[in-house]
Design a protein around this nucleic acid. Structure first.
Length: 110
DNA sequence: GTACTGACTTTTG
DNA sequence: CCAAAAGCCAGTA
């Protein structure tokens, strides 16, 4: 298929593996950028974020969060709608945008 | 080949 | 809790 909307420029490389892994995260579960990188055998949490910004629209990006359980920068409201829809364990936060994900329960363990 | 950017992480104050 | 700094990795110019 002529995927012309955001395919990784490096086929078979890091970006493609990130999308494959994120696509396999089951609903109600989440992974942190650092976890995704670690599962791929690297520590490039930033590199994972770069891939999401580039091709995240092809995968359930809301299932990938930062350390601490905060949603991706600039997408908190969009992610919240998905979490409530999938029943992701959220935790009330006083000094946050309004919430944070309960990593202790939502973190996916492959 | 080097330099810069970025949906990050962690430590320190 | 917040702010700043250093560290790390992949992609692009």
């Amino acid at each position: 298929m002529a995927d012309a909307s955001g395919s990784p420029s490096t086929p078979g490389g890091f970006g493609e593996r990130v999308l494959e892994l994120v696509a396999e995260i089951p609903p109600g579960r989440v992974l942190t950028y650092g976890d995704v990188a670690a599962l791929l055998g690297s520590r490039g949490a930033r590199a994972v974020g770069t891939v999401m910004a580039r091709s995240g629209h092809l995968v359930p990006w809301w299932r990938v969060l930062r350390a601490g359980g905060h949603p991706p920068t600039g997408h908190a409201e969009r992610a919240l709608a998905h979490y409530r829809d999938e029943g992701t364990p959220l935790r009330p936060a006083a000094t946050d945008a309004a919430y944070r994900v309960d990593l202790a329960r939502a973190r996916w363990r492959p």
